[in-house]
Nucleic acid binder design. Structure first.
Lengths: 137, 137
DNA sequence: TACTAATATTAGCATATTATCACATAACCA
DNA sequence: TGGTTATGTGATAATATGCTAATATTAGTA
């Protein structure tokens, strides 16, 4: 615990860094990233999100709870549905920066991606025929 | 596993989001944030970093390994010491954005901080039962 | 009131991650 | 050579996380 709280300044900096870590932790899941990307177009109900992302209701609700508790999204009730929206555009700025970086450094990133999911061959992915074709672009 | 690789485009987007999640996961630890902040001023040896951050050698080395494997930092040997530096200024841009947000929304953030590390106040805070609490109607 | 739909929360389990220890390797210097 | 420092690696227990199933809460409606 690096607390040299001599002037009170270090404590704030320490809080800041812990907060940043919590911030990143909340984003450190593909499902939550997808939820945020889903909300990029605007307000969405919990049901719509889970349908679009094909998540279990309970699972999705838990991810939404994480995003809610960390302040990434706000929710408002409208009748029986609850509409979620992203609280601050900074989120999208960060995601956009990452997207740029991802494409600029695609060659380097690919190596990391392969190291990321080693159990399956990154080249040929099996086409699971019979699955529902999605008209989504 | 949401893979609808009909045109190859969705797969890339999916990879992007998984990569983003991995990116955030690598940053989701206060120690690693501190290491990066420590490297903001430039190149530093592993020993300097651990001394400044008061970390155990082995522990710090592991965190450095995470940052290295994810491509956040590069390392070069100089004699007996190994010098680390941050690979891309985007990291600092993101950290700066968060710092701004942290200070702009300090009042909101403080609530989350308290919920984050409750060393005192064993009074259980009430979860948002009964739907989301609207800021004000 | 009862009933249904939409969300939220809880519980149990499996898995992943962390910090830490112990030891191994490498470079430098006397 | 021997000794000190810097760094890496493997194993372990404690902790955290995610997923599924089940249950609870709220709003709307009959």
């Amino acid at each position: 615990m690096p607390e040299r709280n001599r002037s009170g300044e270090v404590a704030l900096s320490d809080s800041l860094q812990s907060w940043k870590a919590e911030f990143f932790k909340a984003l450190a899941h593909p499902a939550r990233i997808r939820i945020l990307e889903c909300l990029r177009e605007g307000e969405r109900s919990a049901g719509e999100i889970m349908e679009e992302l094909r998540m279990e209701q309970s699972n999705g609700s838990q991810h939404l709870a994480v995003l809610r508790n960390k302040g990434f999204v706000t929710a408002r009730r409208e009748g029986t549905t609850i509409l979620y929206s992203v609280r601050h555009p900074m989120i999208f700025q960060i995601l956009d920066m990452l997207r740029e970086y991802f494409h600029e450094h695609l060659s380097e990133v690919r190596t990391l991606l392969e190291a990321m999911a080693p159990p399956e061959a990154p080249h040929s992915n099996e086409p699971p025929r019979g699955g529902p074709a999605e008209p989504h672009s």
